[in-house]
Simulated assay, not measured.
Amino acid sequence: MLNQLLSFIFSLISLIIPTNKKVYIFGSWFGEKYNDNSKYLYEYILENHPEIKAYWFTREKKVFEHLKRERKPVLYGVSINSICLHLVAFVVFYTVSFNKDLMGPFTNKKTIKFNLWHGSPMKKIGLDVIRSGVGLKESLVVSHIDSRFRRLVKKCFRGIYKKATLKRELILSSSAEISECLKTAFGLNDKQVMLAGYPKLDHFFKSDEYITGKLLYAPTYRGDYNSELDILTEFGFELKKIEDWLERENLELDIKLHPANRLPSEVEEKINDSCRVNLLEVDDIYEVLNLYEYVITDFSSIFFDALAIGKKVILAPFGIDSYLENDRELYFNVGELFPYDKSYDWVELIENFKGYKKLCQIEEARLFYNYADGESSKRIMEMLGKIDK
């Protein structure tokens, strides 16, 4: 509720403060990471648009120091400079949360809030989660309480509320199919959805090199955020059997869990001693996604991203019944997304892998990613250039 109060106060202040069309601010993943669509668009602008004053905002000191060493413009935490720049920014970009990726409450009400999001959703998100009633989390309940505060303010200050809370919100989409999901999830209209493709995928269309026999397993998160979860053992992952299979097939497996989940320490220790299975430590999977011949996932948006860049993608719906009941409903039918033999645990995946070697590009992939040209960042800048002209 404090954020809502600060936002309202600074919205009033911003009525007399103009925005600067040359100031752009970027943030990602609660202000803690330097990754995702925000990172790649930020770097594109630094390289191609010297007339723009682009800044990265972070609350993480390691990210701040990293960007300072690279001599990239960066804002660190709550400071007078950060507040002033948020108040004059023409557009701010984020991938998870406007308030948490950036200094949302301090942003000018005339500023464009551009949600680059972090992937095409297979599982339901935002308002669609509330409507479904499955997977409701505390954060959504808090958002509902905050909305009651907004209604109270609106009732008491009808005249200035409309001016002070005028929304200029946009969201990035990869296709018309995905746009429909985003509109219902975020309560947006057609004009607010920018169909341009994802900056984080642009560099993959310039090279299709990969390492033969290299596999990535990248599942979506389950349960609570920042929770410990043995998502491997639960679905039949026995390290010795997995190693024997990888040895026979001359394969190597990297595992990258969602940032919201972590493995038990004893499981991590066993895998760290393996010569065929690795726990991937990179913060940004999109720096290395090109290296893999196969991508194995469940209900993660990486399914669509890997399809878009031509990877052999295995949709392994481990624990789908439990997931649909306790975590999230899905926007799409798994059988239609992956018209091949389904593997519901690691034992079945090993048995079915011979067939997966023959995987070809699924025609439906074009429904979920319309631009395979590596120019998404360029398109976004062209769209922004037309605003307010």
Rank of each mutant, 00 (worst) to 15 (best):
V134E: 03
K354F: 09
V288G: 09
F26P: 05
R150F: 15
R148Y: 09
R262E: 06
K61N: 12
V91M: 13
K311N: 00
I17G: 04
I16M: 11
K270C: 04
L315K: 06
F93N: 07
E43R: 15
P18R: 12
R151I: 11
T220D: 09
L87Q: 04
E138C: 09
T111Q: 09
W56Y: 14
I125H: 08
N272H: 03
P50I: 01
I45D: 06
F204L: 14
N272Y: 02
S14C: 02
L15Q: 09
Q192D: 14
Y40L: 07
I13P: 14
L251D: 02
V78C: 01
L289R: 05
E325I: 07
D254A: 00
V23T: 04
E281I: 01
E268R: 05
A306R: 00
C156A: 13
A54D: 04
K123V: 02
L253T: 04
I387V: 15
Y210S: 10
D373K: 05
S174I: 02
F90C: 13
F57D: 00
G310R: 03
S300H: 01
V313S: 04
Q192K: 12
L239E: 06
E363L: 10
R69N: 15
K154E: 15
K53H: 03
N99S: 03
V142Q: 14
Y371G: 11
V141F: 14
G335Y: 08
R168H: 14
S343N: 09
R71N: 14
K21F: 07
K206H: 10
I83D: 10
M381N: 11
L263W: 10
I25K: 10
F157V: 12
I350Y: 13
V282L: 02
L257P: 08
A54H: 06
T297L: 07
S14G: 03
K354T: 12
K113R: 13
F90I: 06
R131W: 01
E47T: 09
I387L: 15
I309V: 05
P219Y: 03
E234M: 14
R71H: 14
T165C: 07
F64G: 00
I13H: 01
L140I: 11
R59C: 05
